[in-house]
């Protein structure tokens, strides 16, 4: 079904001609075409072109909330159909994310990382419903924590720094993927990237522990610090992994997570 209930806007004949020429050239030219079709030179344009037409829907747009947008699934739409216009403000009020300044994008992403870290590592009201905690998942925080842990371990190592870094990164990156697949294979309901994001954020306590152990050489102090941070990481990961699988299979999902964190803990203690 297609709806064209837009306002009728009379266009100037010359601009209409120019627009139609542009449309034709854009339709028939492939995105990766190396030869531009010949056409009259066009006037200089604004850096971010935005349609200046009034909203096609006469009703006032409802206030948009993050995650409140209703996506329309258009499976195998007919080629000639015109999609229904719908406001899609995935993040906050208009102007939409396609035309916002770059600095707004940066600030929003940084705020999201900080928010996700707080939700995962510190007590939060969503602890009983962990799926809601990371609705706005990202992989920047986990990426930073994995690299930071690898760097800390390789700095602590006196020899074979490259091997230590590569092993730490590979164990953590592959470990998170394997743990998520393990939950999926157990028949659990989990979202792949959300799980990767959670397991990465849970590394934050171990990162702090590794940093402390790098600065102090006392073995007993190392054991105490690693034990505390290991318990903290496990505490942070527990509700999410346990809620994802059948209660009877909870142990099968949780044991590999603890095993990975214990391995990281041993790496932190052993490397000197």
């Amino acid at each position: 079904m297609s709806h064209n209930h837009g306002d009728t806007i009379p266009l100037h004949p010359s601009s209409a001609q120019s627009d139609m020429d542009e449309i034709e050239s854009l339709i028939y030219a492939a995105p990766s075409a190396t030869v531009l079709p010949a056409r009259p030179p066009s006037p200089p344009r604004a850096s971010i072109p935005v349609s200046t037409s009034p909203a096609p829907l006469p009703a006032p747009a409802k206030p948009s909330l993050p995650g409140a947008s209703v996506p329309i699934i258009v499976p195998q739409a007919p080629p000639a159909s015109v999609s229904v216009p719908i406001a899609s403000d995935g993040f906050g009020p208009p102007p939409n994310t396609l035309t916002e300044p770059v600095w707004d994008t940066v600030k929003r992403d940084l705020a999201r990382i900080v928010s996700n870290l707080k939700l995962v590592v510190f007590p939060n009201p969503y602890r009983e419903d962990p799926g809601k905690a990371l609705r706005d998942w990202d992989l920047w925080g986990p990426f930073f924590f994995i690299v930071f842990l690898g760097l800390t371990l390789s700095w602590s190592a006196s020899v074979k720094k490259s091997e230590v870094f590569a092993v730490a990164f590979a164990v953590l990156a592959a470990g998170a993927i394997i743990l998520t697949l393990n939950v999926l294979l157990l028949g659990g309901h989990i979202i792949f990237f959300q799980s990767l994001s959670l397991l990465g954020y849970c590394l934050f306590p171990l990162d702090v522990g590794a940093l402390v152990c790098m600065l102090k050489d006392n073995v007993i102090l190392k054991i105490i610090v690693v034990t505390v941070t290991l318990a903290w990481s496990s505490w942070a990961a527990y509700p999410f992994m346990s809620a994802a699988v059948n209660p009877r299979r909870k142990a099968l999902a949780l044991y590999p997570v603890f095993l990975m964190y214990i391995s990281v803990g041993f790496l932190i203690i052993a490397i000197d």
Partner: peptide, 18 residues
């Protein structure tokens, strides 16, 4: 394509999200 067809009918489609 929708804009091209809509343009012929003096209508402009809006943003699309799939």
């Amino acid at each position: 394509r929708g804009y091209f067809e809509g343009h012929a009918q003096n209508a402009i489609t809006s943003r699309i999200t799939s």
